[in-house]
Each structure stands twice: as structure tokens, then as C-alpha cells.
Design a protein around this nucleic acid. Structure first.
Lengths: 331, 331
DNA sequence: TCAAAAGTGTTATCCTTACACCCATGT
DNA sequence: ACATGGGTGTAAGGATAACACTTTTGA
């Protein structure tokens, strides 16, 4: 009940999931994430991460913006704190890792995904490279039925043979999170799905973490590219948060160019949410919410009939409490 | 881009907003919050807070549960991380406060609000004592029009005289957050409202923080009881999060006794959300969502016709992805 | 002239909100 | 008998989801 009785100093690291959309002006945009060391044969990709210096910077966010600007040159727009991780891996033995590191995860959005001049070893990579099962734009990902679900089902079967769970059964969680057995696939639950997969021991991160190997060896077909430490968990948190946030805040425009066509906006919304959206309903929704206004110009770069260009109406921030794109249509 | 280049040790404090509902079985439940030093003439109330020992505890949550159990004897049910505060007051000068303290805020729910044996100096106090403008159960709080809004309007007027804001104008934020000028009062935006009031310098916390005094001296009619440091901000975060969470997760049952009447459930939902709910719609909603089941027993303690007793159906967790009480009715 | 993409009009359904009335018990 | 709270049926309105077709350009 006392305030900080024993001084137990730890080190604070700020880890950022910096998201951009490549080709947001065009027809096939891809959400990308800034990684420090692009995955190679020898090392996993890592999110950019830096120490927090409480003397130099008054707040985390100021500190974050400072080192990101300094080290990568990427100008951050929207920034939001995600979660603070204090654990050294859920199944690590005491002393396994340095227990004196706490990392505060952040989601940041930027429009710049042009080549980075300052850090050649950092690059924007498509986020679905790390989460292939989250991309449903072209329908149900083949990976799901071919690899992921069979392994998860096997893992769920395991439980039935052993002790029945006190809480939610594995099979029920599978159904709720992946929409098996007639359930819906809720695209916002990125983190929960990753944690299930992690628990099942199907990603290398889990095995690094001291967890027993999964029934099927996952080496031969990695389920998405692994990342350093718990960085993929932070990215999953960021993806889920962005997908959810997009529906009630106009954050998507932080990722769009100044002007854009409605189709480009739809493709970007689809790229982030990982779903295909219904064209007419999307347009009606956008029109009804009055979040954009026509510039009067036309884009002739579309290949077919020229498209009207629009811009974000900043005034909506002052008009409506929740001016997001409440995309809901399944198809 | 490097991982934790310079060791800059800081101390981690865990601060918990521990919520219970007093009289959840009865007709006039009140949401309460555990405070360490009940507000007296000489000192502000404080949320229970303890240090995080990274050696003893693997995760924050384990550490939190440990010291809460040890020091207060309150058994925590649902626990959720809220936010990590790294700043030493938004307007403090460098060196003002110890910059080496970072506090991780938590929301925790408990059913126990019986007298605490272990810590006589801790007590559950109604949360609306700290946020009187958030209680709309008996209609629009008188405090709003009598005290709060006039001062906020004065603060908004100030701006018009000075430079116009680059972003949202004060008046617009007022309208959006407090529902002035025909807007809606969104009960989830507890934190945003508190931050506006704080920015306007209307709470003692803001003045402690080096902010200039508000136009009207706030001493004579304090706007809710102040708290130590930024604890009222943490409580505001907790209230907003609980109000929002209640709508898509069955967290309310963490605050209810094992069996309860539908009216008791409604009164509890009202107590938390701060709104009056429509009886028939609430009941239909509860029935449709199938989150409760009748026990078969009746409660004769109501004063009128006996009421059927219900219990939470834990199975809904396994059936529906978002089994909350989507209360939406205005009246 | 035709491919390729932009853009629109309409209807069915469900969910939300609001309405007013009857019921069972204790005093 | 009557006060007190428990409990229900139904209809209006709006939002959402699904439907297929016309228009305009570049090649």
C-alpha cells in the first residue's frame, strides 16, 4: 500500500510497430511494417526499439518520436501506446533472460514508406509476411486449411485425451477465434489468434521460450516469418488495434496520400482489415459519414473510367464523436 | 535501432484501480474504488500502489496480485492493464519530480467489498465522489450546469480571444465530450472529459502540476475529490475502460454475487455506465444474449412482487465471441 | 468496339428504440 | 385493497446487407 517502498530499477525499452501502406494511392496497397533487420537466413526481423531516457524526455511518446526520427528518419503521425510487457517470456525459467528489461509497445502510423535514407538496414515489409493467416482479401487463405488448422485441431484433440480444461476448451477457442464450425472470423482478434498459435507451440518464438515442441515439426513450413523476442506479439497487438480503431476513428487517412480515389481508400481499408469489402456499401458508408470531400479533380491513372479524387475532411473531427469507417459488410 | 543501447534504470510502480460494487445484490448499487488513504482534511486519497519486483515475479499481473493480496487481502478477479505513465506531470519542469518512476496502471475487479480486515487505512469509496459529473443515473447532474460547464465555457471563450487552435477548438471538444449544443454524452469518454477539465485547470491536480490557475478559483467548490499525483487520471481510464468493456465482455458478472435478480443486474449496469437504462429493452437484451439463466429460486427481498433469481451462464464464453451487455438505450 | 474500372438505385431484413399494460406478492 | 416492484407484447424507424445494372474513359 506504500508508494514504491523498495527501489528496484529496471530498464525501459520502447518498441514501435511503425505502419505504412505501400501504394496507398494505387490499386493494390499493402500494409507494411518497419523492421530493423530484414529477415535473412541468419537472423529474425526485429521491430525498431530504443531505450527510454527519463532525463532527456518528459514522456514516452516524446522519447519515442525522438529516437525514431533520429535513427530512421521516418516522420511519425499518429502514435498510440499499446501495452507494456514486463515478462521475460511466459515460460522462461527465472534467470533465463535479463529480468530487468520492460518494454512499452507502441503503434505508430506514417505516410512515408519511400526508401529510407538514414538506415539502410531498416525496411518496410508487408505485415502479412508475418501473419499470413490474417489476409482474407482473396478469400480464405489456403494456409489455413492446409497447415494451420490441422495442427491446431491436433493440438485441441490432445487436450480431450488429457485433462479437460478448467476454463475454455481449446476447441471452443479455436471456433471462436478462427471461425471453424460455422463461427465468424473476427478480424480484430489478431492478438488472440497469435496467442493461441503460440500456446500450441506452432511458432518458433514459442519454442525459443522453453515451450515443448508441437506435435508436428513446424520447421518445414514456418507459419509466417518469426521475429526477435516477443516482437511478433507486439505486431499482432498493433494490427488488432489498428483494425479496431479504424472503425471509429479516421486513422486510415494517416496512411493515405493527400488525395485519393474512393477505390484506393477501399483497397487500403481492405488491406488493413484483411477482408474484402462490398463496393457499393463501402461507398455509401463513406458518403454518409461525410469523412471525405471531392477535390474536383479526376485521376486518369486507373486504367478504366477516370475516378474522382477526394480528400479527408478534417472538420469531421469537430463534428462527430466517432468518425471512423464502420466497415461491416462481409463480402 | 539498437536494442537498449544505454542502461537507464527506472523504478516500476504498479498502480491499481480496484473496483467493486457495493450492494450489487440489492436495489441501489454503487460502484466503489479501493483507496489507500481515504480523503481527509489533510491528505488526498490514493490508489493502492506497489513496486514491481522483476526478480520475484515473472509478470506484472502476478506481481500486482501478490502485493494486493498481501497488503489488502482483497482477492482480485478480472485484471487488465490500462496504460503506462512515464511522464512526471505534463507541465513539470525537468527535475520537478523524480523522473525515475514509471507507473503501470491496472483495472481490477473484485466481488469483495466487505470490510477489509488487513488494512484499516484502506476503504472502498464511491467512484462518483471523484467524478460527480459522470453520474447521470438520476438525469443530468446539477453540478454540470451549475459549476462545471460555466467554467469550461469561460475557458473556451478565452481561446477565441487569443489565438485560434491549430487543431480542435476548445468549444468543439466541449460539445463532443459533454454533449453541449445538442451533442450526445458518450459515457465511455471518462478520460477525455477529465483531461479537458484538467487542461482547463479546474482540478487541484492541474495546479499542483504547475499549470496556471483557472479563471474561476476552484477552491470554493472542488470538482470532485482530488487524488494523489495522477491517480485520478488512472481512475478515469479505469472507469472508461470498464464502461466500454462491459458492452462486449461479460465483466459485469465479476462484480455481481452468485445469484441476482434482473433488476439488480440492471441497477449495476446503470451504476457502472452512469446512465439510466430502459427496463424492457434491458431485459430483452439480457434474454436475447443468453448470458444468464434462471436458478429457479425467487427473491422475496424486493418489497413487491418476488423476483426470479438468475446466475451467469459461463458457457456463453464458449458460444459467442462478444457476450457483453450491449446497453444502448438512452432512457 | 471493347475491356476495365467508376459509379448509382432499390429492396429485404434485422436490430434498436419506444410505447403501455398486466401480474404477483407483502403489508 | 393497494402499494410496490416484477414482468411482457408489439409496432415504428433506422441501419445494414444484399441485390444488378449503367457510365465513362483508354487502348
Amino acid at each position: 500500500m506504500t508508494q514504491h517502498a523498495h527501489p528496484l530499477p529496471v530498464e525501459i525499452g520502447l518498441t514501435a510497430a511503425i505502419v505504412a501502406v505501400s501504394g496507398a494511392a494505387g490499386d493494390s496497397p499493402e500494409p507494411t511494417i518497419l523492421v530493423a533487420r530484414p529477415a535473412s537466413a541468419i537472423s529474425d526481423a526485429a521491430l525498431p526499439s530504443g531505450p527510454f531516457d527519463p532525463v532527456a524526455h518528459r514522456t514516452f511518446e516524446i522519447g519515442l518520436r525522438a529516437w525514431v526520427a533520429e535513427q530512421t528518419g521516418v516522420p511519425l503521425g499518429y502514435v498510440e501506446q499499446l501495452y507494456t510487457f514486463g515478462d521475460r517470456g511466459r515460460h522462461a525459467q527465472a534467470g533465463d533472460l535479463d529480468p530487468h528489461v520492460v518494454s512499452v509497445g507502441y503503434l505508430a502510423l506514417t505516410r512515408t514508406d519511400t526508401t529510407l535514407t538514414k538506415t539502410p538496414e531498416a525496411a518496410f515489409r508487408p505485415w502479412y509476411a508475418f501473419f499470413p493467416w490474417e489476409d482474407w482479401r482473396a478469400g480464405r487463405p489456403a494456409l489455413l486449411d492446409a497447415v494451420l488448422l490441422p495442427r491446431l485441431e491436433a493440438w485441441a484433440d490432445e487436450e480431450t485425451k488429457a485433462a479437460p480444461a478448467a476454463r475454455l476448451s481449446r476447441r471452443e477457442r479455436l471456433r471462436i477465434l478462427f471461425g471453424t464450425q460455422g463461427g465468424r472470423f473476427d478480424e480484430d482478434s489478431v492478438l488472440e489468434r497469435y496467442e493461441l498459435i503460440y500456446e500450441a507451440g506452432l511458432v518458433p518464438e514459442a519454442r525459443r521460450d522453453g515451450r515443448e515442441a508441437a506435435p508436428a515439426p513446424a520447421e518445414d513450413a514456418p507459419l509466417g516469418q518469426p521475429m526477435l523476442n516477443d516482437h511478433r506479439r507486439i505486431l499482432a497487438t498493433a494490427m488488432g488495434r489498428l483494425r479496431a480503431k479504424m472503425k471509429y476513428r479516421p486513422v486510415i487517412f494517416e496512411l493515405m496520400p493527400e488525395t485519393f480515389t474512393l477505390t484506393a481508400l477501399q483497397r487500403t481499408a481492405e488491406a488493413i482489415s484483411g477482408r474484402h469489402l462490398h463496393k457499393q456499401n463501402f461507398r455509401r458508408l463513406v458518403e454518409a459519414s461525410a469523412v471525405v470531400e471531392p477535390t474536383g479533380d479526376m485521376s486518369h491513372a486507373t486504367g478504366g473510367r477516370p475516378a474522382a479524387l477526394f480528400r479527408f475532411r478534417r472538420e469531421v473531427l469537430q463534428e462527430r464523436p466517432a468518425p471512423g469507417l464502420r466497415v461491416g459488410a462481409r463480402v
